[in-house]
Simulated scan of single mutants.
Amino acid sequence: MPVLWTPSEKLLLASTSATRLTLLVSAGLSVETQDSGIDERAVEEAAAHEGLDPPALAARLAAEKALAVSRRHPERVVLGADQVLACEGQVFHKPSDRDAAHLQLKRLTGRQHSLHSAGALTIGGQVVETFSDTAHLTLRPLTDEAIDLYLDLAGPDVLKSVGVYQLEGFGIHLFETVEGDHSTILGLPLLPLLAALRRLGCLAL
């Protein structure tokens, strides 16, 4: 059988995200996962002191994840990825519970926000490739009742998403417009990633 992934060891994803793993596997890549273990809030605080904008923050988080795992496995190609949601200058985080999810959707309703997705590839504890992409989405005006109905339909999995929505499911009902690549919205820009892997000689195609 033809082989797409050329390194002897599988790509090591510095994340336990099921969505990112599914994207990679669907693209035919050989993948293993490992939690980076980094303190994301500490990285964000340091980035805030440096004045990093949301795209740069996503890139910093992706690189820190990849580096943390690469130091443990210097012989492997390690992928780190992260996503930052920003609306009118405010950065949003994954909600802690249903009430926080409701409030977050209420703040986004009727407004356009941006999803900045970034990735970093590391080998031997060094960043060798970076990539990023941005999607722009606008939620339609939603009443409190509509938000509650959506949260009832979608279930607790929405708490795993920084935007409190999953476009591949009930979340599609929330939007007026969606501008951007689907994989970018899911948190891993596949086309820039694949281009970076080709530059590293990791793909046969």
Results as ranks from 00 to 15, higher is better:
Leu188Gln: 02
Val178Met: 15
Asp181Ile: 00
Gly163Val: 01
Ala146Lys: 15
Arg60Lys: 13
Gln90Arg: 15
Ala56Ile: 01
Ala120Asp: 01
His73Gln: 09
Leu103Asp: 14
Ser17Phe: 02
Asp181Trp: 08
Ala135His: 09
Asp133Tyr: 07
Glu32Lys: 15
Val178Cys: 14
Thr138Pro: 02
Leu105Thr: 10
Asp144Tyr: 04
Thr138Glu: 15
Phe175Arg: 06
Phe92Glu: 12
Leu151Arg: 06
Val25Gly: 02
Glu129Ala: 15
Thr33Tyr: 03
Ser8Cys: 04
Gln166Ile: 11
Asp82Leu: 00
Leu205Ala: 15
Ala81Ile: 00
Glu176Gly: 06
Pro156Gly: 10
Asp133Pro: 03
Ala18Arg: 15
Ala86Thr: 11
Gly163Thr: 01
Ala101Cys: 10
Thr130Leu: 09
Thr33Leu: 06
Asp39Pro: 04
Arg20Gln: 06
Tyr150Leu: 06
Ile147Gln: 02
Ala86Cys: 13
Ala101His: 06
Val84Lys: 00
Leu203Ser: 09
Thr134Val: 12
Val77Ser: 02
Leu61Ile: 04
Arg72Trp: 01
Glu179Gln: 13
Ser36Arg: 03
Leu23Met: 10
Ala204Trp: 00
Glu75Gly: 11
Glu75Gln: 15
Ala58Thr: 02
Ala135Glu: 01
Arg198His: 11
Ala27Trp: 03
Leu52Ile: 05
Lys94Val: 07
Ala48Gly: 05
Leu139Ile: 07
Pro156Leu: 09
Ile172Leu: 14
Glu9Asn: 12
Thr184Ala: 09
Gly187Asn: 04
Glu32Asn: 12
Thr19Tyr: 10
Pro55His: 11
Ala42Ile: 00
Gly80His: 02
Arg107Ser: 15
Val162Phe: 00
Arg140Asp: 08
Leu167Ile: 15
Arg71Pro: 00
Ser117His: 05
Arg76Asn: 01
Glu75Leu: 12
Ile172Thr: 10
Ile147Val: 14
Gly125Leu: 00
Leu11His: 07
Leu108Ile: 06
Arg71Gln: 11
Leu79Phe: 07
Val178Asp: 05
Ala56Trp: 00
Asp53Asn: 11
Leu194Cys: 05
Gly110Glu: 12
Leu23Trp: 04
Asp35Trp: 06
Phe131Leu: 08
Gly110Asp: 12
Pro141Gln: 09
Pro54Glu: 02
Ala27Tyr: 03
Val3Thr: 12
Ala146Phe: 04
Leu159Phe: 03
Asp82Phe: 00
Gly180Asn: 11
Asp157Gln: 15
His136Phe: 13
